[in-house]
Each structure stands twice: as structure tokens, then as C-alpha cells.
Simulated assay, not measured.
Amino acid sequence: MNDDALKKEIVALLRRNARIPEKELADRLNSSAEKIAALIRELEKDRVIMGYAAIINQEAENGEVRAIIEVGVQPERDTGFDTIAERLGKFPEVHSVYLVSGHYDLRLEVVGQSMQDVASFVSSKLASQPGVKSTATYFLLKKYKEAGVQISKDEHYERLKIVP
């Protein structure tokens, strides 16, 4: 397997479990641990791998409120959506920022200690930003799956019933 193919396989495996040991990656990919370690360092240096994160069961953690906020913005001359997206991403409450297609331009994931914290962020910080035309806030009530991982305790699998 060439280096590019190995890198794709490494990324796919790390996306599923970022704590998988290099030795196990090497065994799965029929390579050496040293080669895998070097390729991971290269992926990090090239900013293909930009960090590692844990998938947290929100119900077990408690105390955090998450919301999805759709933001309509006025693009800026020469930089389009980039400048305002980067500016909004600097707020500590903002966990993620995406440029999306559809009715709104940006999708933010915001974290607060309460619904009031998130509402306060929207009204006092977000809505007053230059270029922000409109917002729509959706509070996340329950997480079922994140990053390909089922969150529920009892992952129940039932085969589809075939009816003649």
C-alpha cells in the first residue's frame, strides 16, 4: 500500500477511535509502527489531522446546554463569508462554525451553562455583529449519535421484517 493510501486508512481508523495505538494501526494496515508514527506526524504537520477529541455522552456529563444557530449574513467584499465566520468562531461560546447551503449561510454550534446563557449570547453578542442579518436558534434536546458513535446504552438491533 502506498503512503497516500495508508494515510487515508489511518485517518479513517483514527476518526473512529483516536486512541488506537500506533502498533495496532500498524498491525491492521500491515505496516510498521515506525512508518505509521511518521505518517501520523506528517498528517498533523500538514493539518490534515488538526486535533483529537473525545465523544462525550451529554446526559452523563450534565450542566451543559448546546444549541444550533443558523445565521444569515451579508458577505463582505473580497473575503465573502470567511471574515465573519472567523470572527464568530472566536467567541468562546461557539464550538463549531460551518458555511452551509440553504436558507441560512452559517451554522454555529454554541455551548452554554443554561438556555438563558445561550439566549443572552445570541441577543447581546451574535445578533449585534456587523454583517449578521438574522438568526434562528434550535436547542439540542437529546443526542443519539455523534461522529459515527451511537450514544444510547442499549444499542438494539432488529432486522428489517420482510413482508410478502
Rank of each mutant, 00 (worst) to 15 (best):
V163K: 11
D3P: 01
D82I: 15
E158N: 10
A38D: 11
D46C: 02
G80Q: 09
Y52E: 09
S134L: 04
Q129D: 01
H95C: 01
P92T: 12
I10M: 03
V163D: 12
A60Q: 15
I151E: 03
R47A: 09
T79Y: 09
Q74E: 13
G102C: 07
S31P: 08
E70D: 09
P21K: 01
K153I: 02
K153V: 04
E44I: 15
G63K: 08
E76W: 13
T135V: 10
Y144A: 11
R107K: 14
R107Y: 05
E42C: 00
H95T: 12
L88V: 07
V97H: 05
S123E: 10
Q116H: 08
E155G: 06
E59V: 05
Q58F: 03
D46K: 12
S134Q: 11
K45G: 00
D27K: 14
E155H: 13
S134A: 14
L140R: 04
I40M: 01
Y144F: 11
E93T: 06
K35P: 03
R28G: 01
L6E: 06
E93M: 03
A37P: 02
L14S: 04
Y138H: 08
G89W: 04
I10E: 01
D3W: 04
E22Y: 14
L160W: 05
S123I: 15
S31G: 05
Q129A: 11
L141K: 04
I84Y: 02
G131I: 08
I68A: 03
R66K: 08
R19I: 07
R77W: 14
E146V: 14
E24A: 10
V122K: 03
M1A: 08
S123L: 13
A37Q: 08
L140W: 00
K8F: 04
V110N: 02
E64C: 01
Q129S: 11
E59S: 11
A127W: 10
V163C: 05
S114I: 06
L160F: 07
I49L: 06
G102Y: 04
E24R: 12
V110R: 00
V132I: 10
R15C: 01
A67F: 02
N2Y: 12
Q74V: 13
E76D: 11
K145R: 15
A147S: 15
K90H: 13
L141N: 06
A119M: 07
V48A: 05
M50N: 04
V94M: 00
V118A: 01
S31L: 06
A85S: 14
E146D: 15
K143H: 08
E155W: 07
S32Q: 09
L6K: 12
N57I: 08
K45V: 06
Q58C: 03
E86K: 15
F91S: 00
A85C: 06
K35R: 13
V163F: 05
G72V: 07
V163P: 01
T83D: 03
R16P: 02
P130V: 12
G89Y: 07
V111S: 01
R159V: 09
V11Q: 05
D82S: 13
L140V: 10
Y104P: 00
E86R: 15
V132Q: 01
E76S: 15
A53L: 04
